[in-house]
Write a protein that binds this DNA or RNA. Structure first.
Lengths: 165, 165
DNA sequence: CTGCATTATGTTACAATATAACATAACAAT
DNA sequence: ATTGTTATGTTATATTGTAACATAATGCAG
């Protein structure tokens, strides 16, 4: 039996459901905020979620092209910019890659566990980290705008060998 | 009078002393560890410290060239690799830039405050953050190898206007 | 100190990631 | 419909980073 791990979904979880849920959330959020989640942006967001692990911009570009859209690098980067500005996607800068964000709304903070073996990413959301950061920064008179925490290591499934993969 | 801020050194601090101290530490560390801090590596490390804020690889390349060394990109990247492996330099991935590390020894963790205005970087070293990370990761069965925390915002000096700059 | 293995650097070419700048198209509101 | 605004298409190029192989320096066994 698989462990039910909310952070690193097991390989047999319902991908499609997972993606469509994320998209619905995004649609609702954009509607509510008066943001234009155009076809292109929707498509890019869907691809990001479908990959379900960090995807590079040029990988997205290729996938877009395969889906029949005429696209060049700016096409992808602009969509990514929009999605990031509005908190629907995060950039993993240590990998030059992008992942979908589950808690939309532009939050500007992110905490990731990145598995070096399988490449999967889990988004943490531990308030303690933010509070420590804020306190430290305050003491130095530093005003925090945003931050990224990227934690690299090995996930549970990969440690147990191939059984779960 | 300037604030004596250990994290963000004021503009009038003794640059040269600062650099030479860092270099001496690095030399001592490499000697002790049997690491070969060659002329090139030493030169690159010195340039990084001399800049005293994150420097890009190609910027370093240019500076190396100006100092009369024949250098191509791999020259710089290899030196950077060595310096990073041995904890003498950190990479700021959100900026594709490199900074000197004050606590040598390969530690593999880093916490940075990055001022969006002046570009200066302060390295934090708050043990609480590491401990929260470890606990969170443990609960998910994730084994942490290394992590990077990059905090973007505005430093004290820049908030006060140009007086301190 | 000589030859050999190892490590570091030089050199050329190129891969991967990202943006500038300007043209066209879609949209939203009069 | 007209117009201002926002989004996308298109071409070219900037920026960052590596692969692959040649040469040079270094450390060490004999």
């Amino acid at each position: 039996m698989k462990t039910n791990n909310p952070a690193f979904p097991s390989a047999d979880h319902d991908h499609k459901h997972c993606v469509s849920l994320a998209l619905k959330n995004a649609e609702a959020y954009c509607l509510q905020q008066g943001l234009r989640l155009t076809k292109l942006r929707h498509q890019v967001l869907e691809l990001i979620w479908a990959n379900h692990q960090p995807v590079g911009a040029y990988e997205l570009l290729e996938q877009l092209t395969q889906e029949g859209r005429k696209a060049a690098p700016p096409t992808v980067y602009r969509a990514l910019d929009f999605l990031m500005e509005n908190g629907l996607v995060h950039r993993i800068s240590s990998r030059n890659a992008y992942v979908g964000c589950s808690h939309a709304g532009h939050d500007h903070t992110a905490q990731f566990l990145i598995c070096e073996t399988c490449g999967q990413v889990a988004e943490l959301d531990d308030a303690r980290i933010g509070s420590v950061i804020t306190k430290d920064a305050d003491q130095l008179g530093f005003t925090v705008a945003q931050w990224t925490l990227e934690i690299s290591g090995i996930c549970d499934q990969c440690k147990r060998g191939t059984a779960d993969e």
